[in-house]
Design a binder for these strands. Sequence first.
DNA 1: TATCATAATGTAACCGTTTACATTTATATA
DNA 2: TATATAAATGTAAACGGTTACATTATGATA
Lengths: 344, 344
Amino acid sequence: MKSGSNSIREVAKAAGVSIASVSRTLSNPEQVSEKTRSLVMDAIEKTNYKINRAARNLRMHQSGEILVLVPNLGNPFFSEILSGIEKTFQNTYYNVLIANSLGYDESEDLLAGHLENNHADGIIILDGQVSPRAHSWLSQHAAKHNVIFACEWVDGLEQPIIRSNNAQGAATAIRYLHSLGHRKIAHVTGPKENILTLARSKGVTEEQARLGLTMDPEWVVEGNFSLKSGYRAAEKILAAKNRPTCVFCDSDQMAFGLISRFNIEGIRVPEDISVMGFDDIELSEFYVPPLTTIRQNRHGIGTAAAERMLALIKNEITSGSNQECKIEVELVVRNSCKRITTPK
Amino acid sequence: MKSGSNSIREVAKAAGVSIASVSRTLSNPEQVSEKTRSLVMDAIEKTNYKINRAARNLRMHQSGEILVLVPNLGNPFFSEILSGIEKTFQNTYYNVLIANSLGYDESEDLLAGHLENNHADGIIILDGQVSPRAHSWLSQHAAKHNVIFACEWVDGLEQPIIRSNNAQGAATAIRYLHSLGHRKIAHVTGPKENILTLARSKGVTEEQARLGLTMDPEWVVEGNFSLKSGYRAAEKILAAKNRPTCVFCDSDQMAFGLISRFNIEGIRVPEDISVMGFDDIELSEFYVPPLTTIRQNRHGIGTAAAERMLALIKNEITSGSNQECKIEVELVVRNSCKRITTPK
DNA sequence: TATCATAATGTAACCGTTTACATTTATATA
DNA sequence: TATATAAATGTAAACGGTTACATTATGATA
């Protein structure tokens, strides 16, 4: 007494057609006549048919999963990107799996594991730190699998990249600070080797050169994008013999940490020192003071990455040809940077 | 020339055993002798065998997916809960799918859809707002499917619930504020009908009664847990004829919004007014001022929910018997509440 | 009308597992 | 040693779709 199972055959019986016609109605409707299509549709309705993904996946040699690897789910920067990705895949056949890229076990190499198991039909990587094992895999199998980098990336790999115009953003920040009269500009960066740090540092250096500014080495302090690292960076800034009048941070989170520590030390922002962030996460508008920052179009990055992935899967483009996609950033001025009169 | 496919048979051939033995070695190792087990293991290694999940799922009538529905991925409150969930499922067979519960299409009833399609082997719902359609489904199929509520829940449904001790937390907040000398305590709540709002309001009311305090109606203002709603709540607080000396918010995010607005209006926290939050998200420590709040054990909620789900799946417990699980909360005092001398 | 090309349908094999059942092998007992 | 029982293994039938190939229906053309 097989009840609900045998599904497609049940539908076929109810519609008075063969199982092939049912299948075709679902996956290749153009191959089927108007008449049978409606017959089948009615039968599907009547039998309350729901396709069995496992069966379909088995037969079609796919998994129906898109994996997205984020460095840290807890970082609110990523949330809107994920929204963009999910939204794009919402009406497709694919599920999206989100995982913290470093796994929870130190030893676990999640990315490499997924890559080698070809567990997923596609992988979107939001993390530029890939293990050597994953790296070698990626460089060898570039063209055969659907992998895309977004936000971060790793130089030398062939996979497509969706990213913000980081150098441009950094340059804009410096220019804005300069326009406010600041000449002594500190820079709190991400990890030294991080690809974003590199790109943005290039932007500030070039813009400073353009403006004829010089950077005192004690003004650049390394962080890791986190609140805590911003908090710690404040110490170094305050300890500088030649104290900067403002500081540009490579993430809003670091800016928060920095401001928080400044306040504890009795240094007011922006009265005593200006600070600027990068990202424009939701909280920035509601911080004290509201944060002036460089906005990344996070939703745009997410949807762009997802659409690119869909194209990859449909073979409209190939991985391994490293198509660039730079998404523009935007200055949003709020209240954390003050105009100063440049001392002669 | 079938190459890599046919997997389990390849392994069987390489090991010199039947496919059944290979399968058993993998899924029921205790049914197989020591000798064949090692034979098979070696063969798996040699052939670089990776199990085909689709085939397994098809045969076993399961999907291998656990769905977790969050109201809003962008809310950092949920991130650590998700971490707890993911971590727990990391070493199991299950994938965890995260979805915004309201979908992206207004019309889309994601939960109901998933429920009816039995797309997932289990669903963890972090959202107390379920559609009527989903609600009726849940009340009818309570026992047959694996559904768990965490954080939020809906009264009258039978599914297991993992939640913080909300009333207790609210009471603790009030008691703390009272101990600081505050007598005029405002309360910024979640949506009026929200289950958390109800639980916490009960906590504050009861505790106020215990302490002999009265609540001026203009001191309770409704929000929706978001930054913006906290920002707006500030207006009403400031407009009160009898201005409170402190305000307790049902979420840290609302506290941020509130403080942000206070600052813009020239009201300092905690000098002019104290504010307290609920949740203790990561940022609270780094806000200006650092936020005094009630900490929810978010990681604990996540892992508890996940473990409960695993037990459900293994049939160690049944859904539909509404086992309670209340997780304790904790007062964390920082800098947003000030002692005042009670006016006579 | 007969003929042919084309569109629509049907039949059945296959995707890679698990597992009921049959069979063989090992172990304990008389 | 013969026999009964238990443990280990093997054979083959599912699971629910897709699709190559064969067949039938349809329409156009001579």
